[in-house]
Protein backbone atom coordinates (compact mmCIF):
# COMPACT_ATOMS: atom_id res chain seq x y z
CA UNK A 1 0.00 0.00 0.00
CA UNK A 2 1.18 3.52 -0.76
CA UNK A 3 2.01 5.55 2.33
CA UNK A 4 0.65 9.08 2.24
CA UNK A 5 1.91 11.92 4.37
CA UNK A 6 -0.59 13.02 7.07
CA UNK A 7 -1.05 16.40 5.37
CA UNK A 8 -1.86 14.80 2.04
CA UNK A 9 -4.24 12.33 3.65
CA UNK A 10 -6.02 15.14 5.49
CA UNK A 11 -6.24 17.09 2.24
CA UNK A 12 -7.82 14.15 0.46
CA UNK A 13 -10.25 13.63 3.33
CA UNK A 14 -11.29 17.27 3.23
CA UNK A 15 -11.85 17.41 -0.49
CA UNK A 16 -13.76 14.10 -0.82
CA UNK A 17 -17.18 15.57 -0.06
CA UNK A 18 -16.95 18.64 -2.35
CA UNK A 19 -15.41 16.46 -5.10
CA UNK A 20 -18.22 13.90 -4.86
CA UNK A 21 -20.86 16.65 -4.87
CA UNK A 22 -19.33 18.02 -8.06
CA UNK A 23 -19.17 14.52 -9.56
CA UNK A 24 -22.87 13.87 -8.84
CA UNK A 25 -23.77 17.23 -10.36
CA UNK A 26 -21.74 16.41 -13.46
CA UNK A 27 -23.40 12.98 -13.75
CA UNK A 28 -26.79 14.64 -13.48
CA UNK A 29 -26.07 17.03 -16.33
CA UNK A 30 -24.43 14.30 -18.45
CA UNK A 31 -27.35 11.90 -17.86
CA UNK A 32 -29.84 14.61 -18.74
CA UNK A 33 -28.14 15.43 -22.04
CA UNK A 34 -27.63 11.80 -23.06
CA UNK A 35 -30.48 9.70 -21.66
CA UNK A 36 -28.92 6.42 -22.75
CA UNK A 37 -25.57 7.03 -21.01
CA UNK A 38 -26.34 5.11 -17.81
CA UNK A 39 -28.70 2.55 -19.30
CA UNK A 40 -26.28 -0.37 -19.26
CA UNK A 41 -25.42 0.42 -15.66
CA UNK A 42 -29.11 0.65 -14.80
CA UNK A 43 -30.14 -2.65 -16.35
CA UNK A 44 -27.00 -4.30 -14.94
CA UNK A 45 -27.75 -3.20 -11.38
CA UNK A 46 -31.45 -4.05 -11.77
CA UNK A 47 -30.51 -7.57 -12.85
CA UNK A 48 -28.22 -7.98 -9.86
CA UNK A 49 -30.68 -6.49 -7.37
CA UNK A 50 -33.79 -8.18 -8.78
CA UNK A 51 -33.49 -11.46 -6.81
CA UNK A 52 -32.91 -9.57 -3.54
CA UNK A 53 -35.80 -7.19 -4.16
CA UNK A 54 -37.95 -10.15 -5.19
CA UNK A 55 -37.32 -11.82 -1.84
CA UNK A 56 -37.68 -8.56 0.13
CA UNK A 57 -41.05 -7.78 -1.43
CA UNK A 58 -42.48 -11.28 -0.77
CA UNK A 59 -43.28 -10.93 2.97
CA UNK A 60 -45.14 -7.73 2.11
CA UNK A 61 -47.30 -9.71 -0.30
CA UNK A 62 -47.95 -12.37 2.34
CA UNK A 63 -48.90 -9.75 4.97
CA UNK A 64 -51.28 -8.07 2.56
CA UNK A 65 -52.87 -11.40 1.71
CA UNK A 66 -53.42 -12.06 5.43
CA UNK A 67 -55.02 -8.64 5.95
CA UNK A 68 -57.23 -9.19 2.90
CA UNK A 69 -58.36 -12.55 4.29
CA UNK A 70 -59.35 -11.06 7.65
CA UNK A 71 -61.16 -8.24 5.89
CA UNK A 72 -62.88 -10.84 3.69
CA UNK A 73 -64.31 -12.73 6.70
CA UNK A 74 -66.01 -9.64 8.06
CA UNK A 75 -68.25 -8.95 5.10
CA UNK A 76 -68.65 -12.51 3.85
CA UNK A 77 -72.48 -12.66 4.04
CA UNK A 78 -73.13 -9.45 2.08
CA UNK A 79 -70.42 -10.30 -0.42
CA UNK A 80 -71.96 -13.70 -1.03
CA UNK A 81 -75.40 -12.25 -1.70
CA UNK A 82 -73.98 -9.64 -4.02
CA UNK A 83 -71.95 -12.25 -5.89
CA UNK A 84 -74.95 -14.53 -6.34
CA UNK A 85 -76.95 -11.71 -7.90
CA UNK A 86 -74.01 -10.77 -10.06
CA UNK A 87 -73.56 -14.40 -11.11
CA UNK A 88 -77.18 -14.60 -12.26
CA UNK A 89 -76.69 -11.51 -14.37
CA UNK A 90 -73.37 -12.70 -15.79
CA UNK A 91 -74.78 -16.08 -16.79
CA UNK A 92 -77.29 -14.26 -18.96
CA UNK A 93 -74.48 -12.17 -20.43
CA UNK A 94 -72.49 -15.32 -21.11
CA UNK A 95 -75.31 -16.64 -23.29
CA UNK A 96 -75.38 -13.35 -25.17
CA UNK A 97 -71.60 -13.36 -25.60
CA UNK A 98 -71.53 -16.94 -26.88
CA UNK A 99 -74.24 -16.17 -29.42
CA UNK A 100 -72.43 -13.01 -30.56
CA UNK A 101 -69.08 -14.82 -30.84
CA UNK A 102 -70.55 -17.42 -33.15
CA UNK A 103 -72.32 -14.79 -35.19
CA UNK A 104 -69.18 -12.66 -35.36
CA UNK A 105 -67.08 -15.61 -36.53
CA UNK A 106 -69.60 -16.45 -39.26
CA UNK A 107 -69.75 -12.86 -40.48
CA UNK A 108 -65.95 -12.52 -40.42
CA UNK A 109 -65.77 -15.68 -42.49
CA UNK A 110 -68.23 -14.25 -45.00
CA UNK A 111 -66.35 -10.93 -45.25
CA UNK A 112 -62.85 -12.54 -45.29
CA UNK A 113 -61.59 -10.32 -42.43
CA UNK A 114 -57.84 -10.43 -41.81
CA UNK A 115 -57.60 -11.80 -38.26
CA UNK A 116 -55.91 -9.74 -35.54
CA UNK A 117 -52.40 -10.78 -34.65
CA UNK A 118 -52.11 -13.35 -31.89
CA UNK A 119 -51.13 -11.68 -28.65
CA UNK A 120 -48.99 -13.41 -26.04
CA UNK A 121 -48.60 -12.37 -22.42
CA UNK A 122 -45.89 -12.66 -19.78
CA UNK A 123 -47.00 -12.32 -16.16
CA UNK A 124 -44.59 -10.68 -13.73
CA UNK A 125 -44.62 -9.33 -10.20
CA UNK A 126 -43.81 -5.75 -9.21
CA UNK A 127 -40.69 -5.87 -7.01
CA UNK A 128 -39.85 -2.18 -6.57
CA UNK A 129 -41.42 1.18 -7.13
CA UNK A 130 -39.89 4.58 -7.67
CA UNK A 131 -40.21 5.90 -4.11
CA UNK A 132 -40.19 9.60 -4.86
CA UNK A 133 -42.25 12.43 -6.17
CA UNK A 134 -40.53 12.85 -9.52
CA UNK A 135 -40.63 9.55 -11.39
CA UNK A 136 -43.42 7.05 -11.84
CA UNK A 137 -41.88 3.70 -12.65
CA UNK A 138 -42.00 0.18 -11.25
CA UNK A 139 -39.58 -2.71 -11.60
CA UNK A 140 -40.88 -6.18 -12.47
CA UNK A 141 -39.20 -9.54 -11.96
CA UNK A 142 -39.04 -10.64 -15.60
CA UNK A 143 -36.73 -9.57 -18.40
CA UNK A 144 -35.48 -10.55 -21.82
CA UNK A 145 -35.07 -14.18 -20.64
CA UNK A 146 -38.87 -14.33 -20.35
CA UNK A 147 -39.31 -12.77 -23.78
CA UNK A 148 -39.87 -9.18 -22.74
CA UNK A 149 -38.73 -6.40 -25.06
CA UNK A 150 -38.54 -2.66 -24.90
CA UNK A 151 -41.72 -0.80 -25.85
CA UNK A 152 -44.16 -3.58 -24.98
CA UNK A 153 -47.38 -2.54 -23.28
CA UNK A 154 -47.91 -3.55 -19.65
CA UNK A 155 -51.47 -4.15 -18.44
CA UNK A 156 -53.51 -5.64 -15.61
CA UNK A 157 -57.00 -7.07 -15.84
CA UNK A 158 -58.34 -3.54 -15.38
CA UNK A 159 -56.41 -1.74 -18.10
CA UNK A 160 -53.17 -0.18 -19.27
CA UNK A 161 -50.34 0.30 -16.75
CA UNK A 162 -47.52 1.63 -18.93
CA UNK A 163 -44.78 0.41 -21.21
CA UNK A 164 -41.38 -1.23 -20.83
CA UNK A 165 -38.53 1.25 -21.08
CA UNK A 166 -35.53 -0.76 -19.89
CA UNK A 167 -35.25 -4.50 -20.15
CA UNK A 168 -32.48 -6.43 -18.44
CA UNK A 169 -32.13 -10.19 -18.51
CA UNK A 170 -34.02 -10.78 -15.24
CA UNK A 171 -35.75 -7.47 -14.52
CA UNK A 172 -37.42 -4.72 -16.46
CA UNK A 173 -38.62 -1.20 -15.78
CA UNK A 174 -42.15 -0.07 -16.56
CA UNK A 175 -42.77 3.61 -17.25
CA UNK A 176 -46.26 4.22 -15.83
CA UNK A 177 -48.80 6.21 -17.84
CA UNK A 178 -48.70 8.90 -15.12
CA UNK A 179 -44.95 9.63 -15.52
CA UNK A 180 -43.88 13.02 -16.81
CA UNK A 181 -42.23 11.39 -19.84
CA UNK A 182 -45.09 9.08 -20.83
CA UNK A 183 -46.96 9.77 -24.09
CA UNK A 184 -49.49 7.20 -25.34
CA UNK A 185 -51.59 7.44 -28.52
CA UNK A 186 -55.21 6.94 -27.45
CA UNK A 187 -58.72 7.44 -28.78
CA UNK A 188 -62.11 8.07 -27.28
CA UNK A 189 -64.10 4.86 -27.58
CA UNK A 190 -67.06 5.07 -29.90
CA UNK A 191 -66.19 8.38 -31.52
CA UNK A 192 -62.71 7.40 -32.82
CA UNK A 193 -61.40 10.82 -31.79
CA UNK A 194 -57.62 10.54 -31.51
CA UNK A 195 -55.60 12.09 -28.69
CA UNK A 196 -52.33 11.72 -26.81
CA UNK A 197 -52.34 10.70 -23.16
CA UNK A 198 -49.56 12.66 -21.44
CA UNK A 199 -48.47 12.00 -17.85
CA UNK A 200 -47.47 14.85 -15.57
CA UNK A 201 -46.60 12.92 -12.38
CA UNK A 202 -50.10 13.52 -10.98
CA UNK A 203 -52.58 10.69 -10.46
CA UNK A 204 -54.63 11.75 -13.48
CA UNK A 205 -52.76 12.21 -16.78
CA UNK A 206 -53.76 14.88 -19.32
CA UNK A 207 -55.30 14.40 -22.76
CA UNK A 208 -53.46 16.42 -25.41
CA UNK A 209 -54.24 17.12 -29.07
CA UNK A 210 -57.84 15.94 -28.81
CA UNK A 211 -59.39 15.81 -32.28
CA UNK A 212 -62.70 17.40 -31.30
CA UNK A 213 -62.50 18.58 -27.68
CA UNK A 214 -66.08 19.89 -27.62
CA UNK A 215 -67.39 16.33 -28.06
CA UNK A 216 -65.55 15.15 -24.93
CA UNK A 217 -67.75 14.26 -21.94
CA UNK A 218 -66.93 13.20 -18.39
CA UNK A 219 -67.21 9.42 -18.24
CA UNK A 220 -66.04 8.77 -21.82
CA UNK A 221 -63.90 5.64 -22.10
CA UNK A 222 -60.33 6.16 -23.30
CA UNK A 223 -58.62 3.23 -25.05
CA UNK A 224 -55.30 2.80 -26.89
CA UNK A 225 -55.53 3.67 -30.57
CA UNK A 226 -52.78 1.31 -31.70
CA UNK A 227 -51.18 4.12 -33.72
CA UNK A 228 -47.41 3.95 -33.72
CA UNK A 229 -47.66 0.20 -34.01
CA UNK A 230 -46.26 -0.75 -30.61
CA UNK A 231 -49.43 -1.08 -28.57
CA UNK A 232 -52.35 -3.29 -29.51
CA UNK A 233 -55.45 -1.18 -30.18
CA UNK A 234 -58.43 -1.01 -27.81
CA UNK A 235 -56.66 -1.67 -24.50
CA UNK A 236 -58.73 0.13 -21.86
CA UNK A 237 -56.82 3.07 -20.36
CA UNK A 238 -59.23 5.10 -18.26
CA UNK A 239 -62.20 7.38 -18.06
CA UNK A 240 -62.36 11.10 -18.85
CA UNK A 241 -62.69 12.65 -15.40
CA UNK A 242 -62.36 16.37 -16.12
CA UNK A 243 -63.05 18.61 -19.07
CA UNK A 244 -62.82 22.37 -19.28
CA UNK A 245 -60.41 25.23 -19.71
CA UNK A 246 -57.69 23.51 -17.64
CA UNK A 247 -57.65 20.70 -20.20
CA UNK A 248 -59.18 17.24 -20.12
CA UNK A 249 -57.83 14.65 -17.69
CA UNK A 250 -58.16 10.88 -17.50
CA UNK A 251 -58.68 8.75 -14.42
CA UNK A 252 -56.79 5.47 -15.11
CA UNK A 253 -58.75 2.24 -14.63
CA UNK A 254 -55.77 0.66 -12.90
CA UNK A 255 -54.95 1.65 -9.31
CA UNK A 256 -51.31 2.39 -10.14
CA UNK A 257 -50.17 2.71 -6.54
CA UNK A 258 -51.32 -0.81 -5.72
CA UNK A 259 -49.79 -2.93 -8.45
CA UNK A 260 -49.13 -6.57 -7.62
CA UNK A 261 -48.98 -8.75 -10.72
CA UNK A 262 -48.91 -7.25 -14.21
CA UNK A 263 -48.92 -8.63 -17.77
CA UNK A 264 -46.47 -7.61 -20.47
CA UNK A 265 -48.19 -7.80 -23.86
CA UNK A 266 -46.22 -9.08 -26.82
CA UNK A 267 -48.18 -7.94 -29.84
CA UNK A 268 -45.52 -9.35 -32.14
CA UNK A 269 -45.08 -6.05 -33.93
CA UNK A 270 -41.45 -5.31 -33.14
CA UNK A 271 -40.41 -8.02 -35.60
CA UNK A 272 -42.94 -6.88 -38.19
CA UNK A 273 -41.56 -3.36 -38.40
CA UNK A 274 -39.56 -2.74 -41.61
CA UNK A 275 -35.77 -2.90 -41.51
CA UNK A 276 -34.20 0.56 -41.66
CA UNK A 277 -31.95 -0.33 -44.64
CA UNK A 278 -32.82 -3.25 -46.96
CA UNK A 279 -29.87 -5.65 -47.16
CA UNK A 280 -28.06 -5.76 -50.55
CA UNK A 281 -28.73 -8.95 -52.51
CA UNK A 282 -25.57 -9.18 -54.60
CA UNK A 283 -22.62 -6.80 -54.83
CA UNK A 284 -21.43 -5.09 -58.00
CA UNK A 285 -23.08 -4.53 -61.38
CA UNK A 286 -25.17 -7.67 -61.20
CA UNK A 287 -27.23 -6.28 -58.35
CA UNK A 288 -27.95 -3.15 -60.40
CA UNK A 289 -29.05 -5.29 -63.29
CA UNK A 290 -31.12 -7.38 -60.96
CA UNK A 291 -32.86 -4.31 -59.59
CA UNK A 292 -33.61 -3.09 -63.14
CA UNK A 293 -34.97 -6.52 -63.95
CA UNK A 294 -37.14 -6.26 -60.88
CA UNK A 295 -38.43 -2.86 -61.94
CA UNK A 296 -39.40 -3.89 -65.47
CA UNK A 297 -42.24 -6.26 -64.64
CA UNK A 298 -43.68 -3.51 -62.45
CA UNK A 299 -44.88 -1.86 -65.68
CA UNK A 300 -48.46 -2.72 -66.37
CA UNK A 301 -48.59 -5.64 -68.78
CA UNK A 302 -50.63 -5.18 -71.90
Amino acid sequence: MIRLSPQLRAGIQRSTLPALILLSGAMLVAGKTDQTMFETLRTGLSDVAAPALDVASRPLGAAEAAIDRVRGFIGVYQVNRRLEEENQRLLQWQQVALKLTTENRQLQGLLKVVPDRAVSYVTARVIANSGGAYVRTVMINAGSQAGLARGQAVITGDGLVGRLTEVGSRAARVLLITDLNSRIPVKIEGSNTGAVLAGDNSERPRLLYVGSPEALKIGDRVVTSGEGGVFPPDLPVGMVSAVGPAGPRVEPYVELSQLGYVLAVDYGLSGALPQPVPPAVRPGRKSKAASEELQTPAQPAR
Binding site: T16, L17, L20, I21, L23, S24, G25, A26, M27, L28, V29, G31, K32, M37, F38, L41, R42, L45, S46, A49, L53, A128, N129, S130, G131, G132, Y134, V135, T137, M139, T165, E166, R173, L175
Partner: peptide, 28 residues
Protein backbone atom coordinates in the same frame (compact mmCIF):
# COMPACT_ATOMS: atom_id res chain seq x y z
CA UNK B 1 -18.39 8.71 4.99
CA UNK B 2 -19.09 10.68 1.83
CA UNK B 3 -18.22 7.84 -0.55
CA UNK B 4 -20.79 5.59 1.13
CA UNK B 5 -23.45 8.27 0.60
CA UNK B 6 -22.37 8.59 -3.01
CA UNK B 7 -22.73 4.83 -3.50
CA UNK B 8 -26.12 4.62 -1.76
CA UNK B 9 -27.48 7.63 -3.67
CA UNK B 10 -26.24 6.27 -6.98
CA UNK B 11 -27.74 2.83 -6.32
CA UNK B 12 -31.04 4.47 -5.42
CA UNK B 13 -31.09 6.46 -8.67
CA UNK B 14 -30.26 3.44 -10.79
CA UNK B 15 -32.91 1.25 -9.15
CA UNK B 16 -35.72 3.82 -9.10
CA UNK B 17 -35.16 5.01 -12.64
CA UNK B 18 -34.73 8.65 -11.67
CA UNK B 19 -32.03 10.87 -13.14
CA UNK B 20 -28.61 9.48 -12.21
CA UNK B 21 -26.91 11.76 -9.69
CA UNK B 22 -30.01 13.24 -8.05
CA UNK B 23 -30.00 10.86 -5.07
CA UNK B 24 -26.25 11.09 -4.53
CA UNK B 25 -26.36 14.88 -4.76
CA UNK B 26 -29.21 15.07 -2.21
CA UNK B 27 -27.47 12.87 0.35
CA UNK B 28 -24.07 14.55 -0.08
Amino acid sequence: PSYALFGIGLGEDLLTGSLVGVGALTLL
